[in-house]
Write a protein that binds this DNA or RNA. Structure first.
Lengths: 159, 159
DNA sequence: CCTAATTGCGCAATGG
DNA sequence: TCCATTGCGCAATTAG
């Protein structure tokens, strides 16, 4: 089955991106220097303000689509591009940090588990000794020279 | 010199993005339908394939910069856009998963630390008992009814 | 109001 | 060839 893919035309804001007017700083060279092509910038509603004071609180002024060739436009774009780059870098960095955090925590976990294992072992040894003692006492038998294993199977921590 | 501005043009592949020809099937409605402005579509090298078998192994065929209005071009773009979206979704998902992993590991860690604390306490209790016992034995004194604190300060787990 | 930061999206180059 | 990833720019939104 061939794919009858529909041209969804997702969401290109207006369906067109125009030329990239060279703003400033000719980095290298060899640009086709595409000619012509200019979007006539419509003028903005001269909402003015000669009345000195202040005004226009609820103005629904949309933005004049931005004049692509305006110097100021390019400036803003450039700034934004920079900001975007920065933001993305941070984002990635954060992701990596998080990943590393996972690794650290995993290590820590293993460490802790090992410790638990150790402590558990120590405990079981001591308990066994206790039980034995208890039995001896119960049987009223003094252990004369029991082959008790007084071995310290682990460095006994304080607390 | 009208534009003293230098085109920094960070890395826009060629410094220009052109029109977005609407391929077919106007999805919704209300497209400004920008007039004019069209990149003259050059015809593609009719690289065909009628010779039945297979061929062109080491051919250095350059890519015809892609004809913007080609049906096939749009198709590829669309597919790629889809793939991109998918990829990004996964990426985000993964990031979230990782973050959650961190949380889980943190919890686990606390759990383990608590357990360690408990075990340590138990151990210290048993050890104290032992020491006392040893002293009694050494002093050759049978503890008749010592005020020993046999309190089980913690539920002694099995093992 | 303005600027910086985020976010969704498309394009093209590149990797597998 | 196709899909997946990635860097990048644009524009709309969201914070500050």
């Amino acid at each position: 089955m061939s794919r009858p893919s529909q041209p969804k035309l997702t969401a290109d804001h207006n369906g067109v991106s125009v030329i990239q007017s060279q703003a400033h700083a000719s980095s290298s060279s060899s640009l086709p220097a595409v000619a012509g092509l200019q979007q006539v910038p419509q003028l903005v509603p001269a909402n003015s303000s000669s009345t000195g004071g202040k005004a226009l609180p609820p103005s629904k002024m949309k933005k004049p689509p931005a004049d692509k060739d305006s110097e100021e436009y390019r400036q803003r774009r450039e700034r934004n591009n920079l900001a975007v780059k920065k933001s993305r870098m941070r984002s990635k960095q954060k992701a990596m940090d998080t990943q590393q955090r996972v690794n650290e925590l995993k290590e820590e976990n293993e460490r802790l588990e090992a410790k638990i294992k150790l402590l558990s072992k120590e405990l079981s040894v001591l308990k066994d000794l206790f039980l034995e003692h208890a039995h001896n006492l119960a049987d009223n038998v003094q252990p004369p020279a029991g082959p008790e294993d007084t071995t310290d199977s682990a460095g006994v921590p304080q607390l």
